[in-house]
Design a binder for these strands. Structure first.
Lengths: 120, 120
DNA sequence: CAACTATATTGACAACCTTCAATCTATATG
DNA sequence: CATATAGATTGAAGGTTGTCAATATAGTTG
């Protein structure tokens, strides 16, 4: 039985139309979902919010005091945000101060916006 | 030792400033992260993309053919998207056709945009 | 340098998420 | 009604992520 016949049969049954392929390929989908994943945790959102609010700098102990998790957990999320390029840190004496990288947040926002708008 | 003294000491040490509280409360952060989570999977993004592209309707067998996962996995992601209100379905005979809910995607996009813009 | 403090790292554990084979349900058709 | 097909559901297995106690590191201060 040849493919042409098979395709015709499928069309006849009323179901599937020919060749449906994603515009968004697997790699692009992965990149977009990575962009979304870094943001999709309440604690990371609250940390970004705190850093944005006090647009100077905040030390870890302030963050720890403002959030309902222990210090290693705060450090863990800070590390993820830093690896994603969304925040930066600077040691001053005993303390480490964190600050938001506005251009990076803006760039991320713009990427998300562009790609979400393509989904319509 | 009273609190006032403690606060003064902290300020003197150069670290923590008074009262840092998230503008984004825990519940709002959870809602936002839920919005992000539904999107943050490559397969769901590709499904939305396929549905947006063919803005009519697509049956599950077409989706299954276009994606590198088995039928139960496709159904699983479709269920999550439907529960999130981003897509809709309609049985026609043996087949179930899925369609994107543009207003819902737009509303989600707008929510994200608003809240991300507050993070700066 | 000893004692101390702020933060980072490690490792263990639990919770959650993704996937699939197997099975179930609904519909169609001979 | 028997058989067949599309899709949903269930349950198990594996993977990833989030949390914390314990510990390590880096800087400070007497």
């Amino acid at each position: 039985m040849d493919e042409t016949l098979e395709l015709t049969e499928r069309r006849v049954t009323g179901c599937c139309r020919p060749a449906l392929a994603p515009r968004l390929d697997a790699a692009a989908a992965k990149r977009l979902s990575d962009d979304l994943s870094i943001l999709s945790h309440p604690m990371r959102l609250q940390i970004l919010d705190l850093l944005a609010q006090r647009d100077g700098q905040i030390c870890v102990c302030d963050l720890e005091a403002a959030l309902p998790v222990k210090q290693p957990t705060v450090s863990h999320h800070l590390k993820l945000l830093r690896e994603a390029g969304l925040i930066d840190s600077e040691r001053r004496g005993l303390w480490v101060y964190y600050m938001i990288r506005c251009e990076a947040v803006t760039a991320l926002r713009d990427r998300l916006l562009t790609q979400l708008d393509a989904l319509r």
